[in-house]
Design a protein around this nucleic acid. Structure first.
Length: 740
DNA sequence: AGATGAGCGGTTTTT
DNA sequence: CCGCTCATCT
């Protein structure tokens, strides 16, 4: 039996949070302070010790991964095989979808409505822009979509959309058309899930009250990432009797550009003055050195509750290594060299390492360096399974089977594989449909079922109606069997009917790969055969690539990922590269203090991922758009005190701003860790490999001639004249020079 | 329908 | 500079 000892695994602050009886609880949890622990223990505590029924609990997260993790951890705590499904534990979006399906009678939607993902949303914007005869050069679909999404996140329906310029007026018209396309397609987009749920509760007080009464306890993860819609929804759900328990960290809010507003934390405090506030400052992840550096960086941000993270590990740990490479090639080489060296010395294993960067483009040079070294790696966020054409095609077929009104899916696959339905025919179909007040898919169904008997038959010129009727017949067959056939059977039938295998698999490696992706999707469909087509589609819409990626077996290799993707993860050895002005902080954030503050938080998130060692790396020149440009060290580096840093390599520009004693590196600071003394990073005796007039080859600059070689700061430094780029000064150990 | 070249944009991307 | 999208041609 699970007893009161459930609380013994918590520190004092955690226990105070978990057992709080306050109506509103705000837990500000520093990185590595047991945020998930508090949430899971709270749920377990409520169920096991407070007699709360799972039915009365709503717990929301931002990612499926977080939801899954919370679920399994609660199950383990309660020693349950499986948490009862009456508990609502899921992402904001999945929770809203669940609510909307239950209450669909209050909404202008059919029970089988579909959820449009980001790609679909863009396709709808394109379609709306086209329908309205607006220039997509002046009104870029991505920009317009961002405006619409932003409006929805702020709960603004078209009729409330603020128009302050002609441009706004045009965007409003696109927004209106966009919503019309969604409604005609019996669909909602991601943002609508929140927006509709909010309107549902706002406009139907009795529905709202039902949920308020039901959910005695509402728990929210990553509260700093909520947007206006989510916050408003939570406020509605928190009625007179029930409790709202939110956990977050303003300092880790890095999704402002997606509508997240960390000021919801401040708002929460204002809206609920009686809230209990708990700070979690005991850190179980990093060394004190890492935490001190992180704190110095983040303390410069305003509007936050300052936290004093202290390490529970009882050791200050090793210094943070600061390295300045001559250029971005050398930067990548340094990272790979260092990893190789630590692996060779058995001081770490592959999966201990993570290399983090601001932009995805930075992964390219890293990948090349890993490849050159013959070292495996795992790239996060690159492989977009659901972004693959073949996967999207098959999903579109399935969506049509479920909901033939889905205009976007229809437009996507009506001519896939090519069946002679061109643009003209499609426009004619859409026109005929609009005149009849039907969806294009419904006209197709009729053509398919009744053939020449259909009133639509004569609406098409010549033989163009034949492929339409043929496809309509297929669609009718799928639609009728969508509910009856087992999902895998339907899946296979669609593939057979469309001759899809032959279409995508041309026997090339790529073709085989594409077919494998379809097979992978089929496997997932198989897993869903109990729950059926609509559950499968819902899952596909609400599950991201990030989630599927974790299905792959963990390999013992370093991970390459953006700082955004790193949130929530931890690694023993962390490299953060590209610490240059313009990259981190990014150029685009320079003229807005709020954006700059977010860049700082991004760096903070990166730093606090490190358990044991942190390496901060920059390049003094960087190849951008072809030519090399000199760079300035990131302003964030200035905030890290020297006594936490261990300079390595040359560090020209970083050090120029610091005291002269810093040039001494190791010697200037006697309190270097044991490990550092035992294994000096630079070879003690420098043997020069190069001599003047030697012919050499650089991995990117090609052939050159050595002009001079000398030892500078314990590194062999070579001057080389390259045929391609002229004179360069290189660090021999990093440049990857090959003697010819 | 598929190939080819011009032209443009190049931050992050939980659902 | 490179890679992608889109328009235009065949």
């Amino acid at each position: 039996m699970v007893g009161a000892d459930i609380l013994s695994g918590l520190n004092e602050a955690q226990r105070r949070a978990v057992t709080s009886q306050a109506r509103q609880v705000l837990v500000l949890a520093g990185p590595g302070s047991g945020k998930t622990r508090v949430l899971t223990y709270r749920i377990a505590y409520l169920i096991a010790l407070q007699g709360v029924r799972p039915y009365q609990i709503l717990a929301v997260t931002f990612t499926n991964k977080a939801a899954r993790e919370m679920q399994t951890r609660v199950e383990r705590l309660l020693q349950m095989e499986r948490l009862p499904s009456e508990i609502w534990l899921g992402t904001f979006h999945a929770t809203c979808a669940r609510m909307l399906r239950r209450e669909v009678k209050y909404l202008p939607l059919d029970q089988n409505f579909v959820i449009m993902d980001a790609d679909d949303q863009l396709a709808i914007v394109r379609r709306a822009i086209k329908d309205l005869n607006i220039s997509d050069k002046l009104y870029r679909p991505t920009t317009v979509h961002a405006a619409i999404s932003h409006a929805k996140n702020n709960l603004l329906l078209p009729k409330e959309y603020p128009v302050r310029s002609y441009r706004d007026e045009v965007i409003l018209r696109i927004y209106e058309r966009y919503q019309q396309v969604l409604q005609d397609s019996n669909a909602v987009d991601f943002d609508d899930l929140l927006l509709w749920a909010y309107r549902l509760l706002l406009e139907n007080p009795q529905v709202c009250e039902n949920y308020q009464r039901r959910f005695a306890h509402i728990l929210v993860d990553e509260f700093q990432d909520t947007n206006m819609a989510q916050y408003a929804l939570l406020r509605l759900l928190n009625g007179r009797e029930n409790s709202l328990f939110v956990v977050g960290d303003e300092d880790q809010s890095i999704y402002r550009w997606r509508g997240a507003d960390y000021r919801n934390v401040l708002r929460f405090e204002e809206d609920y003055p009686a809230r209990e506030k708990v700070l979690l400052e005991q850190n179980y992840r990093s060394t004190q050195t890492v935490l001190d550096a992180a704190r110095r960086v983040i303390d410069r941000n305003p509007h936050r509750t300052a936290k004093h993270l202290s390490s529970a590990r009882g050791e200050s740990g090793e210094r943070i290594i600061l390295y300045e490479a001559v250029d971005d090639y050398a930067e990548a080489a340094y990272v790979v060299d260092t990893i190789e060296r630590l692996l060779a010395a058995h001081r770490a294993k592959g999966s201990d390492f993570a290399v983090m960067y601001r932009t995805n483009a930075q992964s390219r040079l890293l990948e090349e360096a890993f490849l050159r070294a013959g070292l495996g790696y795992r790239l996060v966020g690159a492989l977009r399974f659901y972004g693959r054409r073949e996967v999207k095609d098959v999903i579109a077929f399935l969506r049509l089977a479920q909901n033939p009104a889905d205009e976007i899916s229809l437009a996507r696959v009506i001519n896939v594989p090519p069946r002679g339905i061109g643009d003209k025919t499609l426009v004619a179909l859409q026109l005929a449909a609009r005149q009849a007040g039907l969806a294009a898919g419904e006209v197709l169904l009729d053509l398919g079922r009744r053939g020449g008997e259909s009133p639509f038959w004569k609406a098409f010129s010549g033989r163009s109606v034949i492929p339409l009727a043929d496809f309509g017949a297929l669609l009718a067959g799928w639609h009728e069997s969508a509910a009856a056939l087992p999902l895998p059977t339907l899946f296979d039938r669609i593939l057979v009917d469309t001759v899809y295998h032959e279409y995508i698999d041309d026997e090339s490696d790529e073709g085989k790969d594409r077919w494998e992706n379809v097979q992978e999707l089929r496997k997932m469909a198989y897993d869903f055969q109990e729950r059926g087509l609509s559950a499968f589609l819902e899952n596909l819409a609400l599950v991201s690539d990030q989630d599927t990626m974790d299905r792959n077996p963990e390999q013992e290799v370093p991970t390459l990922l953006t700082l955004h993707a790193a949130k929530g993860l931890e690694f023993k050895q962390v490299f953060i590269i590209g610490l240059d002005e313009g990259l981190l902080p990014h150029n685009r954030s320079m003229d807005d203090p709020e954006e700059m503050a977010e860049e700082r938080r991004l760096f903070y998130v990166g730093i606090t991922r490190a358990k044991d060692n942190l390496y901060l790396v920059r390049a003094s020149q960087r190849s951008s758009y072809g030519s090399f440009e000199p760079t300035e060290p990131s302003r964030f580096l200035e905030d890290i005190p020297e006594n936490l840093l261990q300079p390595q390599g040359v560090l020209r520009s970083v050090l120029r701003r610091r005291s002269p004693s810093f040039f001494g590196g190791t010697q200037a600071y006697p309190s270097v860790s044991r490990r550092e003394q035992a294994a000096p990073q630079a070879a003690p005796v420098i043997v020069r490999r190069f001599q003047p007039s030697m012919r050499v080859r650089h991995p990117s600059w090609g052939e050159g001639i050595v002009l001079e070689s000398k030892v500078v700061d314990g590194e062999e430094t070579v001057d080389v004249a390259f045929a391609s780029v002229g004179f360069k000064r290189l660090i021999a150990s990093l440049a990857g020079l090959e003697v010819l």
